[in-house]
Amino acid sequence: MSDGVAPTAGAERTAAAEAARLWHITLSVAGEEAPLREVRRSLEQLAHDHPFLLTSRYAHDHAEIRYWEEARDLHDAAAVALRLWGEHRSSASLPPWEIVGLEVVGRETYHQRVAEGYGPAPATPVGVHPF
């Protein structure tokens, strides 16, 4: 600060809370076919490793993961989302699929879309489900 007074810990937490926002992420991945049982098990492990996952839908050759991410801005939220699949590929035994789609929208936009009846339905039921 210009007056030489350091910010208090409470002020730092408040600034951090104001800086971070919630973003709704939809990550789509696809690739060569894999056994459904293995795809489901790996997505369940991913949900266990990344507790903010709301829902995953899957088929033999693609999956969609929807969750909320806390980040300062869209760029940060997208960067985290783009790393999610690769960073958990080994620990969750995810198929070697590539990211083929990413949507990142702010919380207000997500809720406005749902209220107006266009855009993704609320992520219910929570969990891992076949398409």
Rank of each mutant, 00 (worst) to 15 (best):
R13G: 00
R13W: 12
A15Y: 09
A15W: 13
A16K: 08
A16Y: 04
A17H: 10
E18H: 01
A19T: 01
A20R: 10
R21T: 02
R21H: 11
R21D: 02
L22Q: 08
W23F: 14
W23A: 03
H24Q: 10
I25Y: 06
S28V: 05
V29Q: 04
V29E: 04
A30V: 03
A30Y: 02
G31W: 07
E32V: 01
E32S: 09
E33Y: 00
A34F: 04
A34L: 01
P35G: 08
P35C: 04
L36E: 09
L36I: 03
L36G: 07
E38R: 13
V39M: 03
S42A: 11
L43C: 07
Q45E: 14
Q45Y: 00
A47R: 15
D49L: 15
D49C: 10
D49K: 11
F52W: 14
T55K: 08
T55A: 10
S56M: 06
R57F: 02
R57N: 05
R57Q: 06
R57Y: 01
Y58E: 00
Y58A: 01
H60E: 13
D61M: 01
H62M: 03
I65T: 11
I65Q: 11
I65R: 04
R66A: 14
R66F: 04
Y67E: 03
Y67N: 01
Y67Q: 06
W68M: 00
E70V: 05
A71M: 05
D73R: 01
D73H: 04
L74Y: 11
H75F: 02
H75W: 03
H75N: 07
A77D: 01
A78M: 05
A79C: 07
V80Y: 10
V80I: 12
A81V: 06
L82A: 07
R83P: 00
L84W: 13
W85V: 04
H88K: 12
H88W: 13
H88D: 07
R89Y: 00
S90T: 13
S91P: 09
S93T: 08
S93V: 03
L94P: 09
L94C: 10
P95C: 11
P96F: 05
E98N: 13
V100H: 07
G101W: 01
L102R: 06
E103T: 12
E103F: 07
V104K: 13
V105M: 03
G106L: 06
R107S: 11
R107T: 02
T109I: 06
Y110Q: 14
Y110I: 02
Y110H: 13
Q112I: 05
Q112T: 13
A115M: 14
E116T: 07
G117N: 04
G117M: 04
G119C: 06
G119R: 03
P120F: 07
P120T: 10
P122A: 09
A123W: 15
T124M: 07
V126E: 15
